[in-house]
């Protein structure tokens, strides 16, 4: 018990250190790096919320489109209805969750590959709708000149979130909130029920758990946050268009989550961070990005099927085994 609590203390200490570094970072790195960091933070929300859906045992291929739903909804509310961006962004997330609720009726009738392909079809149909209707979605060109948030504070004056330094902190705040929410949800009764549904769905059903309701709940919460991530993206780069949310991008998200691992919430964060660093290192070889992703994906699946999150444990295990071999050799 004592060990447990010291471990938790160590974990929260590490978390605090990471947050402290993240708060200092925007003042020491250049604007370009800062932009990369903002995208990374947004992608962390995408990856972490995606993992939350996988807790139900289903793998969606519509997650990136749901991100687009949030981006489009928030952009339309702010641009066409003139709503404050501060209101438009959470409403964008809520709109995404509402759409997820509607989609849950047909989608959670399916399981396994059928769910995978069904979610892809639903997402692709939505994406094609944006592409098709020039009014209000702007057709293939999408929506441009999306307003950036501003805040009028008494005594401070107008804070312009168009400044990436300030936008960074907004994004960081949303990331932290989403991580806390997903972490708490997973540790709660809801999370335990989701685990039960994942591993023993008929048993869970036979003890009176409404599987559909729990899956829908997970899907809606994850969609709310990914919608928020889409809104954050839209109000940052001021454009949303259909190619930003295509299947190719969805497959990249899949790679992040698989390479990082889905056992704990740290897995997708590690995955998206490591692959973003790889992306940046290989910026000159942009056209080879899929090749590198494909190779990393295949190698991970082959040699580290539980993802990078289990790499330290594996290395420790390997070290122990080596030591044991050495001691048995010297012993004989």
């Amino acid at each position: 018990m004592l060990q447990m609590s010291s471990q938790t203390a160590l974990k929260s200490l590490g978390g605090a250190a990471v947050v402290a570094v993240l708060c200092v970072l925007p003042f020491v790195i250049g604007l370009y790096r800062l932009d990369v960091l903002i995208f990374l933070l947004i992608n962390i929300i995408v990856a972490v919320s995606y993992r939350f859906i996988t807790l139900t045992g289903e793998w969606s291929l519509g997650h990136v489109v749901m991100m687009g739903v949030g981006g489009y909804a928030s952009a339309l509310l702010a641009k066409k209805l003139g709503l404050s961006v501060w209101l438009a962004m959470p409403l964008g997330g809520l709109a995404t969750a509402a759409l997820a609720f509607l989609l849950a009726f047909p989608l959670f009738r399916m399981k396994g590959f059928y769910f995978l392909i069904g979610s892809f079809a639903a997402g692709e149909a939505i994406r094609r709708t944006w592409n098709h209707f020039r009014d209000p979605f702007g057709g293939p060109g999408g929506l441009a000149r999306i307003p950036t948030p501003e805040l009028e504070l008494p005594g401070v004056g107008l804070i312009d979130f168009g400044d990436p330094r300030i936008y960074y902190f907004l994004t960081l705040a949303v990331v932290l909130v989403s991580i806390v929410v997903f972490y708490r949800l997973e540790k709660s009764r809801i999370g335990l029920t989701l685990h039960a549904i994942h591993w023993q769905d008929s048993l869970a059903e036979s003890v009176g758990i409404n599987i559909w309701r729990y899956k829908t709940l997970a899907f809606c919460v994850a969609s709310f946050f990914v919608g928020l991530a889409g809104a954050l993206l839209g109000h940052h780069i001021t454009v949303v268009n259909p190619p930003q949310f295509s299947l190719a991008i969805m497959l990249y998200v899949l790679v992040w989550v698989i390479v990082g691992g889905t056992r704990t919430i740290a897995g997708p964060i590690v995955g998206v961070t490591v692959l973003s660093i790889v992306d940046e290192r290989l910026r000159e070889f942009q056209e080879y990005r899929p090749l590198i992703y494909g190779a990393i994906l295949i190698l991970t699946m082959r040699f580290l099927p539980t993802g990078l999150e289990d790499l330290p444990a594996k290395l420790i295990g390997l070290g122990r085994r080596l030591r044991r071999i050495r001691t048995t050799q010297t012993g004989s």
Binding site: Y293, G294, L297, M301
Partner: peptide, 17 residues
């Protein structure tokens, strides 16, 4: 079952490049 699908996604990326 998911592993094979993920492997094929890897092949998809590689063949394209």
């Amino acid at each position: 079952p998911l592993g094979g699908l993920i492997m094929s996604v890897g092949v998809l990326f590689i063949l394209e490049v």
